[in-house]
């Protein structure tokens, strides 16, 4: 029963991640269109950043799914461990790379597995404290830049971007806390999801209002 609930939570987690990936892809597309029109290189960097973020998110969804397929059929084998390790590094690196690109354009994750609590271990799937710290440091720069931009232009669109990057920063802070308090993992995922939703709202409003 408990295990069923955990699997349901994991499915929900992956659904949020997939939706976030689609939103990141939409932002990347918009930034690329803006780059095509203006030739402004920073828009190209922003587009690449969201593309990398989106690829990392989709990679995590596929990797986690594959991980559960393996442990569902063969148990926690060395192969499953390897998949988890690869996805952890790839996901964390993709996000950091994306944040570096955000920082340039605007000026998450492992637990030692135990056979006893495999589903529980999969919840904070892909949390590596070192990668989280690096992500937090880069995101602090990105948030400060978004804040300065907001105070400079004072538009609601800039405010949505500031909220989005702040949510991403919060998601990584919760990611660290998740290593000692598992509930923080959900706050982390929700913060990330809300950040991407904020960007989606910005994208829609910027396109609609004349």
């Amino acid at each position: 029963m408990m295990q069923e609930a955990l699997y349901a939570l994991i499915r929900f987690d992956l659904l949020l991640e997939a939706i976030s990936g689609v939103i990141a892809l939409m932002i990347s597309h918009q930034a690329n269109m803006a780059y095509q029109l203006t030739g402004e290189k920073r828009l190209s960097d922003l587009s690449t950043g969201f593309l990398v973020l989106s690829a990392g998110m989709f990679g995590r969804v596929v990797g986690t799914f594959y991980f559960f397929v393996i442990i569902g059929t063969a148990g926690l084998t060395p192969e499953a461990e390897m998949v988890r390790g690869i996805v952890t590094i790839a996901y964390g690196s993709a996000r950091i790379m994306a944040y570096v690109l955000f920082a340039i354009s605007t000026r998450r994750t492992i637990r030692k597995p135990t056979l006893a609590n495999t589903p529980l271990m999969a919840l904070p799937f892909l949390i590596d404290p070192n990668l989280e710290i690096v992500a937090i440091m880069i995101l602090i720069i990105v948030v400060l830049q978004a804040m300065m931009n907001y105070f400079n232009v004072r538009t609601k669109f800039a405010l949505y971007v500031l909220i989005a990057f702040s949510c991403l920063l919060l998601s990584h802070i919760f990611g660290i806390i998740a290593l000692i308090e598992i509930r923080a993992y959900w706050w982390s995922q929700m913060a990330q999801f809300l950040g991407l939703i904020s960007l989606l709202v910005m994208l829609i409003k910027a396109g609609r209002e004349t």
Binding site: Q30, A31, A34, T38, E40, R42, L43, L46, S105, T106, R107, Q145, A146, M148, N149, N152, V153, T155, F157, A158, Y160, V161, M202, L203, A206, E209
Partner: peptide, 8 residues
């Protein structure tokens, strides 16, 4: 608007 929102 989109570019300005990101400070570009």
């Amino acid at each position: 608007r989109f570019s300005q929102a990101f400070g570009i």
